[in-house]
Amino acid sequence: MGFIFAAKFWREIIICFLAFLLLITLMLLNVKTGKLKDAEAKCQQRIQAIEQAQYKALNEANAKANKASADYEKIKAEQREKVETVTRTVQKIVERPIY
């Protein structure tokens, strides 16, 4: 009789045990998902910090290049004035020959 009584409840015991294991699995999954979201948020923050540093470095490099370009254009314009002055003076001397 004891065997028949035990056989009747094995099915319910196994179902309860599997439900308990499912519950534990879902809780672990929830914990791991939360940790994953936290890690992803930290990763995004680090990526944004790196991007901002790169944009800052790029802007500084562009400012340096623009300053160098402006200095070059200024020197080039000054030298162009000197060349034009010398060329015009020489042309005026050549254009009026003295006999």
Score class of each variant (00 low, 15 high):
residue 52 Q to N: 09
residue 58 L to Q: 05
residue 44 Q to F: 02
residue 97 P to F: 10
residue 87 T to F: 08
residue 5 F to Y: 06
residue 99 Y to L: 14
residue 80 R to M: 09
residue 81 E to A: 13
residue 92 K to T: 13
residue 7 A to H: 01
residue 11 R to M: 12
residue 51 E to V: 05
residue 54 Q to H: 05
residue 69 S to L: 09
residue 25 T to C: 05
residue 73 E to C: 01
residue 38 D to Y: 04
residue 19 A to M: 06
residue 99 Y to R: 10
residue 36 L to R: 14
residue 95 E to P: 00
residue 6 A to P: 00
residue 52 Q to H: 06
residue 91 Q to F: 04
residue 38 D to W: 01
residue 14 I to G: 00
residue 11 R to K: 15
residue 52 Q to W: 02
residue 82 K to S: 07
residue 14 I to P: 00
residue 68 A to K: 09
residue 8 K to D: 07
residue 58 L to Y: 02
residue 71 D to K: 03
residue 89 T to N: 15
residue 53 A to Q: 09
residue 79 Q to H: 04
residue 87 T to K: 10
residue 99 Y to F: 14
residue 72 Y to F: 08
residue 76 K to Q: 05
residue 8 K to S: 10
residue 88 R to H: 08
residue 66 N to Y: 08
residue 97 P to T: 09
residue 70 A to I: 02
residue 64 K to I: 02
residue 62 N to W: 08
residue 52 Q to P: 00
residue 6 A to Q: 07
residue 7 A to F: 06
residue 64 K to V: 02
residue 80 R to E: 14
residue 26 L to N: 06
residue 58 L to T: 02
residue 62 N to V: 13
residue 25 T to S: 08
residue 84 E to R: 07
residue 35 K to P: 01
residue 17 F to N: 12
residue 98 I to G: 03
residue 92 K to V: 08
residue 47 I to Q: 13
residue 66 N to L: 10
residue 62 N to Y: 08
residue 51 E to P: 03
residue 75 I to F: 04
residue 11 R to C: 14
residue 8 K to T: 12
residue 63 A to C: 01
residue 21 L to T: 11
residue 89 T to I: 04
residue 99 Y to A: 07
residue 2 G to V: 06
residue 2 G to T: 03
residue 78 E to S: 04
